[in-house]
């Protein structure tokens, strides 16, 4: 067991717990980015370079941006940069933590005593070329399906988030034409 694994594991657990405890949404999001970087590091440590870099690109470069954007767009007051979340009720906290401990109490002992068959020696190597062959060969259908899912979800997200009525539309948005609203016909 290497020191690198323990360090990365520590980073992941500490940042993830801090992210989930923090009352500041921006801090939560940024701490969770650190968790994701730590996980990418763990994938690299395990020898799955491609997955590690994909994790960094998708989560650090993509998902985190969308999260931060959502946080900023859903502020209570427009000019209030602080984003604090109201405290949850005591009942909710107790019930939630109890359920979590129950799950942990089920999982951890089972995991510790499980007789897992393990490979001895160095881990497998997986070149980028091999991943490409796997994706374009036996998993081609899955790739296509994921493509369809991504497209559909993108369109769906656009439909959900796009303003539907005139008063939802921010004042500065005049349909992207760059013209003043006064020049356009008033909707009847």
């Amino acid at each position: 067991m290497s020191l690198a694994f323990l360090a990365l594991a520590l980073v992941c657990v500490v940042t993830a717990s801090a992210a989930m405890i923090s009352r500041n949404l921006i801090h939560s999001a940024l701490l969770l980015v650190l968790t994701w970087i730590g996980l990418a590091g763990l994938y690299l440590w395990a020898g799955a370079d491609f997955v590690g870099f994909s994790q960094a690109i998708v989560y650090v470069g993509g998902v985190s941006m969308v999260v931060l954007f959502a946080v900023l767009l859903t502020r209570r007051q427009r000019d209030e940069p602080l984003v604090l979340i109201p405290e949850a009720g005591v009942g909710r906290v107790v019930a939630g933590l109890a359920a979590t401990f129950w799950v942990a109490a089920l999982l951890v002992p089972a995991m510790v005593v499980a007789p897992l068959v393990q490979r001895a020696g160095p881990g497998p190597t997986l070149t980028v070329k091999r991943i490409g062959e796997l994706l374009a060969g036996p998993h081609l259908v899955a790739v296509l399906v994921v493509g369809v899912i991504l497209t559909v979800s993108l369109i769906g997200a656009l439909y959900l988030a796009a303003p539907v009525t005139a008063e939802d539309q921010p004042e500065w948005d005049n349909g992207g034409t760059g013209r003043d609203r006064g020049n356009q016909e008033e909707p009847s």
Binding site: L30, I37, A40, G52, I57, G61
Partner: peptide, 9 residues
């Protein structure tokens, strides 16, 4: 590009 992805943050 993974390294560059974090500069936005």
């Amino acid at each position: 590009f993974a390294a560059g992805a974090a500069t936005e943050l």
